[in-house]
Amino acid sequence: MIKNKFIVVEGLEGAGKTHACTYIKEILKKNNIKNVILVRQPGSTPVAEKIRKLIKMYHTEKIIKETELLLMYAARIQLVKTIIKPALKKGYWVISDRHDLSSLAYQGEGLGINKNIINQLKYLFLENFIPDLTLYLDVIPEIGLQRALKRSSSLDRIEKRSLTFFQKTRKGYLNNIKSDTKTIKIDANLNIEKVSKNIKKQFSKWLQKQFI
């Protein structure tokens, strides 16, 4: 029987991560894998959801970049240690909307925090805990932000950042996945039907290898 896995979906706003997470769960179900939980980062625990609101909402006081990074990791650590790791130990598959690759892209490349600092945080608190597979949905910022606007009439604190910020963030993603053999890149600029078809093709191919 195939061993359970930790799967992460990454990408900019409007890349289609939520849909992809749900779709991957459906593919697993069709392959008779039913013990699957979906989580999101930041969030998915009471504490982490409060941190999520704190990160995304506007404040009279400016949230500095280092504070944002530490808030992201506080939520991540809470989720990993209270939900993700226990679920994996019980044999569940876990699909997460974002993980630490987001911090390297958003707070690292986007906000300019030294990558070594982020990696130190990662290894200090998460040690060698990494996804078995990451699906990176690559979308150019102009398309992603247009989709985000259609999805909601008002953008949150991060979504309202400059186009340059998201261009840098995308660059961060692309640089970090270059040599990562556990990451599959999906062109998310296409319509949802074509993106879903590509996800199914690439993910199913990966999944079949796990049965060998």
Rank of each mutant, 00 (worst) to 15 (best):
M1N: 06
F6T: 02
I7K: 01
V8T: 04
E10W: 04
E13C: 02
G14L: 04
G14K: 02
A15T: 14
A15E: 10
T18Q: 07
H19N: 10
E26D: 14
E26Y: 05
I27R: 05
L28R: 10
K29F: 10
K30E: 11
N32G: 13
N32K: 15
L38K: 10
L38T: 05
V39E: 01
S44G: 09
P46F: 12
V47T: 02
M57K: 12
Y58W: 01
Y58Q: 14
T60N: 06
E61D: 05
E68V: 02
L71W: 07
Y73Q: 07
Y73F: 11
A75F: 11
L79G: 00
L79A: 02
L79D: 00
V80G: 00
K81R: 14
I83T: 06
I84V: 12
K85S: 12
P86L: 14
L88A: 11
K90N: 13
K90I: 10
Y92G: 04
S96G: 02
D97E: 13
R98V: 04
S102F: 00
S103L: 12
A105E: 07
Y106R: 01
G108F: 05
E109W: 04
E109H: 15
G112I: 09
G112S: 07
I113N: 02
Q120L: 11
K122S: 08
Y123R: 13
Y123F: 13
N128H: 09
P131M: 09
P131I: 05
P131C: 09
D132N: 15
Y136E: 01
D138T: 10
G144M: 01
R147E: 12
L149M: 12
L149A: 01
S154I: 10
S154R: 14
L155I: 06
L155N: 01
R157M: 08
R161Y: 14
S162F: 09
T164N: 13
F165N: 09
F166G: 00
F166A: 00
Q167S: 15
K168M: 10
K171W: 14
I177L: 13
I177F: 14
I177P: 00
K178A: 13
S179T: 15
K182V: 15
T183R: 13
K185V: 14
D187R: 06
L190T: 04
E193H: 08
V195D: 03
V195F: 11
S196P: 02
K200N: 03
F203Y: 07
W206Q: 02
Q210V: 01
